[in-house]
């Protein structure tokens, strides 16, 4: 066992700096100190080689092909819901519908605690004042019957990258869907569901869009959205 000498202390100090030298995060001064030591220390040079091999292997993993636009649309929908609730544009029936829709769609829906608390509060307040106190301003596809004719349900859409213009036109025309805005910088469109040629209800049109292979994401927009506000 080596005695602790100034040189051994120096070696130990450099040894502790090597991980941070290998990932290029040392200060310039420390970097120069390490490089000077490496010229004469084979043990540290071997350790650096090991750490570099580890780093290179960890970086060699292929890129994950997770479509960002689809995930973004999902989190944006979640934010819309909570923001609408905060601004009082969402009542407990809408929360229940969202929960039911998410559960029906499957795939790991977890109710946000803040949203759950707001939903509970709305239920209590609604029960106290009567349901007429909370007529829903929030537009969902399932309360479309109650809406004025000019208040067509508005949705957000993201299409698969492979879709051609002709295919999209055919799909949207067949379902009575009109694009009113988009794409945003991130490929998100805003669309309205008018009367479908086959008489399908908006909820059915939304289901059809969600199942279609050319559609990556289709979700209703809670609350009125002024044209021009980017999704």
């Amino acid at each position: 066992m080596n005695q602790a000498t100034p040189s051994a202390d120096r070696h130990s100090e450099i040894w502790d700096l090597l991980p941070w030298y290998a990932n290029s995060t040392l200060s310039d001064a420390d970097q120069r100190t390490v490089e000077a030591h490496l010229e004469s220390c084979t043990e540290c040079a071997r350790e650096l080689s090991f750490l570099s091999g580890l780093s290179a292997t960890m970086h060699a993993e292929e890129a994950l092909l997770v479509p960002a636009e689809r995930s973004l649309a999902a989190v944006t929908g979640r934010i819309d819901t909570v923001e609408a609730a905060r601004q009082g544009r969402l009542d407990w029936r809408d929360v229940a519908r969202i929960v039911r829709a998410k559960l029906a769609a499957g795939g790991g829906f977890r109710l946000d605690p803040a949203l759950a608390a707001i939903a509970l509060l709305l239920i209590v307040v609604t029960a106290w004042f009567g349901s007429s106190a909370f007529e829903p301003e929030f537009r969902t596809l399932s309360n479309v019957e109650a809406q004025a004719s000019d208040a067509e349900p508005t949705i957000r859409l993201v299409f698969a990258g492979t879709a051609t213009i002709d295919e999209l036109q055919e799909l949207l025309t067949g379902l009575g869907v009109t694009l009113v805005q988009g794409p945003s910088n991130y490929g998100v469109y805003t669309a309205r569901i008018a009367a479908a040629p086959n008489g399908a209800q908006p909820v059915e049109v939304l289901d059809e869009l969600r199942r279609h292979p050319l559609v990556s994401f289709a979700e209703p927009i809670p609350g009125p959205e002024a044209p021009g506000s980017a999704p």
């Binding site: 993993e61 960002a68 989190v75 934010i79 910088n185 991130y186 999704p231």
Partner: peptide
């Protein structure tokens, strides 16, 4: 919202990979 979307897309690739490395599950 636009700033959020930019931040989201900027961090998406590397944080998703970091989380994948922790969880070994893409979803």
């Amino acid at each position: 919202r636009e700033a959020f979307e930019r931040l989201y897309l900027e961090y998406h690739p590397r944080v998703i990979r970091f989380l994948y490395r922790l969880t070994r599950n893409t979803e």
